[in-house]
Amino acid sequence: MEKRYDIVEIKENVLADNDRVAGKIREELRRSNTCFINLMASPGAGKTSLLIKTIEALKDKYSIGVMEADADGDVDAKTISALGVRTLQIHTGGLCHMDADMTFRGLKELGFEDLDLIFLENVGNLVCPAEFDVGAALQVMILSVPEGDDKPLKYPLMFKVSDCMIVNKIDAEAVFDFDYEACVERARALNPEIRPFRLSALKGENVDEWIRYLDGFIREWRK
């Protein structure tokens, strides 16, 4: 007997369910007044180093939590929890990004109601994390000098969805052919609102400018 199938119209964006969960995260975090920041970059761009400097500067002011998302391992979570902030290591099981559902589960596991500020250190990748809204209040991407100033041309979506572009490792500019102005121009062509920073998380150069901005953003958001 031939199988009979009915056509069911769905007409739904594949990431519609992700965006629904991201919306739910925003609602919950608004309620608990917890500012949530999504930190994205390639592996080795300096996400953890910048996070350490940022936490050291802000931990007396805000109660901070950190979710470390990696394919495997817990090296970053160990480093961060040594700073005395609440830390959760999330394993994506090989998946290249965090989606809203994984993020929500992570937030519940971490416990967010009593925290002022939460960072998600997303999986090291310039492609996939840009596709998935995780419900953050601020999207921050780091581009390190050795990666090159042409990255906005190669990974445009990351620069389109980010509120801040942090050019890190400027202490290495002398040995790399990195044109900061050209990089900013390329990023702005994709996203005129993007806010660039130029710093060295390792040496501490210009880190205070980033901290001042972030602190202002958090204060404004939590008002």
């Binding site: 069911v8 594949v14 989606d99």
Partner: peptide, 29 residues
């Protein structure tokens, strides 16, 4: 490699639809 992630999202949506619409089998997507 976000393709696998997208497949999982589609599967989730379709499984939810299947539950709502009492679908037992999907012939094509």
């Amino acid at each position: 490699m976000h393709e696998m992630g997208i497949v999982l999202h589609i599967a989730k949506t379709l499984n939810e639809t299947a539950e709502e619409e009492k679908i037992t089998k999907i012939g094509s997507v």
